[in-house]
Design a protein around this nucleic acid. Structure first.
Lengths: 251, 251
DNA sequence: CAGAGATGTCCATATAATGGACAAAGATTT
DNA sequence: AAATCTTTGTCCATTATATGGACATCTCTG
């Protein structure tokens, strides 16, 4: 969170501000930002002016700040250039067909993962649904699957430092319980997540590994609880087949 | 393009670099960037380190730089917070149903417009298709429609300064011809664009106005040439109805 | 219309960003 | 295998840049 890289303070501040504006449920005005961010008034003005000049934010009529469309344009190219996404699409579609449920592909971003692909039925899918959504490592199938593929040192560091905040009332917030789950995942190659990230949704997750067995992302199958098949292997078998097909072949 | 806003040089540089990395067809390495951008070696290193620390870019194994997934996450919120998109969705679907053709919604970004919504058939639509794509003002239906709704001063300034580069071999590259087309659009409320932005695709565009009659975006109906209906009003009538319904009601 | 609060700008200062110059690591030649 | 060249990465003095205290202006409210 702090400014690790020397010589980039102002950039880091600007991006932090942009992120804050993006994260707000409702577009903030200057007052809000002054209170919520630790910037002095002139600094805030400058940062905002810089962001606006780059079309990264826009002002509404009533002087509120919203994310700008430049971001959407940049994101398009980011998605286009994501080779893991291209490579895995076919396999994801197959997995969706086998399980008949929604499948997601997530890759690391910051402290967690971000969904970069979603395959559901043949209905309209667009970015606003879930592509681009951030998911914490501790509360999601993809997250725990990813954790389970991390080297022991990194996992230990995560469990020590992470903020295991509850996302739903089912979220695991206890580090040792989380470790147990992760160990189970290491054993069986996948994890079952019961409503930890979204109430009413269970989910099976498994990691995609590169040729050095380091995780590069994770795949999940999400199932509405009411229609969850008793037989776990109905989901886990195709899922494992899917990630095995992808692992090693990427990067 | 130059750094207009004082006190934001380094930020502007960083974003410029990010944009350049996004724009590259193939991920650049350090060497490429050094040649293509006007940065000294140490500066480039710093900017890259800053971008990477913020997850805005990632390095591939072979030291090439690609856009990072943080962008996708931010873009999601940008789309979510776009009220024009929410407000117009219903009307766009209706327009698609009436014309049976693909419809787009575009809003200003930088020198041109960016598509922020697309409604085609009931087939899968995802961001990588066209949402997020930048379109120039002079070569597209949405662009010219937008121009036609600009105050005369702004239009004149655009025609004077703009770089009317050909996008296809049908693109209007002559300012006075462009003005004629725009005047036609002002008269009839919509514009017909014949393959100027994409070969084989014709398109009808019309602007959405706010309550002060300033353009806030534009809508287009795109038709593959081979199935273009002779009767223009087949497209223009629903299009005009659509933008009239939306204009004034936004902002 | 006075007072309080919010909004916007200036500019001296400190510090963060800059880039010339050097070092280290790889590649290529003799 | 040594020598030379090329590429890649880092240091640090310098200065231009970003910073924020202070002041000006505009906007409510009683």
């Amino acid at each position: 969170m702090a400014n690790q890289v020397p010589g980039t303070q102002s950039f880091s501040r600007s991006i932090g501000l942009l992120q804050h504006i993006c994260d707000r449920a409702t577009p903030p005005n200057l007052q809000n930002l002054l209170e919520e961010c630790a910037f002095t008034r002139p600094t805030l003005y400058r940062l905002l002016a810089g962001l606006e000049a780059e079309n990264l934010i826009t002002q509404t009529r009533d002087k509120r700040f919203k994310p700008g469309v430049r971001l959407i344009n940049m994101a398009r190219t980011a998605l286009t250039q994501s080779d893991i996404r291209d490579i895995s699409r076919e396999a994801l579609i197959k997995l969706r067909n086998q399980t008949r449920e929604t499948v997601h592909l997530a890759v690391p971003s910051g402290e967690g993962l971000v969904y970069i692909e979603k395959i559901e039925s043949l209905e309209t899918v667009r970015m606003s649904s879930t592509i681009g959504t951030f998911v914490p490592l501790h509360s999601s199938g993809v997250g725990k699957a990813y954790l389970s593929a991390l080297p022991e040192d990194d996992l230990a560091a995560f469990l020590r430092d992470a903020d295991l905040r509850p996302i739903t009332r089912f979220t695991t917030t206890d580090a040792s319980r989380l470790r147990t789950q992760i160990m189970t995942c290491r054993m069986q190659g996948f994890i079952f997540d019961n409503q930890e990230n979204e109430e009413g949704i269970a989910c099976f997750g498994a990691a995609i590994l590169d040729d050095q067995l380091r995780p590069i992302g994770a795949i999940s199958v999400s199932v509405p609880l009411f229609r969850l098949n008793e037989d776990e292997s109905h989901y886990s078998a195709p899922l494992l087949e899917c990630v095995r097909g992808l692992s090693g072949g990427i990067g």
